[in-house]
């Protein structure tokens, strides 16, 4: 079980990195074609399950919802997390409560159930095949 402070630091670092990355891409949206940080895409040449989610987030912010879903449906999940989590963490920090930590543990236990995990893995594989088919 991950400790509470570690989880909060990790999520904060991820959020900071995520926001920096999105802002960087929004500013450079015209001339970043062919540039990728993805390890799998750079080594194997095929897109990974979450490739295209940056483009999906950016298209969603611009209001092109169908293009966003075409790039990667996971982008919407990431965007939701990026919007919700900062407020949740700050609220926890102010109230000195641990609602986010408790929810994190219970969601983790929910996903570990065999039926749930099999369904999620299947969905992910479908999404991945779609990514490869689209040549993202």
């Amino acid at each position: 079980m991950i400790s509470k402070t570690r989880l909060y630091t990790l999520v904060s670092i991820c959020l900071l990195a995520g926001y920096t990355w999105v802002i960087f891409n929004l500013v450079n949206s015209n001339h970043n074609e062919g540039f990728s940080v993805c390890l799998i895409k750079n080594t194997l040449g095929i897109p990974c399950p979450s490739c295209g989610s940056t483009r999906a987030v950016i298209e969603f912010l611009k209001g092109n919802f169908t293009v966003s879903i075409y790039y990667n449906p996971l982008g919407i999940i990431i965007l939701t997390l990026m919007v919700v989590l900062p407020f949740w963490i700050i609220a926890d920090f102010i109230k000195k409560s641990s609602t986010f930590y408790v929810s994190y543990i219970s969601i983790e236990n929910f996903i570990r159930r065999k039926k749930v995990s099999v369904i999620l893995i299947l969905l992910l594989i479908i999404n991945w095949s779609w990514n490869i088919y689209k040549h993202l």
Partner: peptide, 21 residues
């Protein structure tokens, strides 16, 4: 057994490739 962190890595292309390294 770190399911949550695994999902975090999965959704971010291995944490922009840095986390996986």
């Amino acid at each position: 057994g770190d399911t949550g962190l695994g999902i975090g890595k999965l959704l971010t292309c291995g944490g922009f490739g840095i986390w996986s390294i």
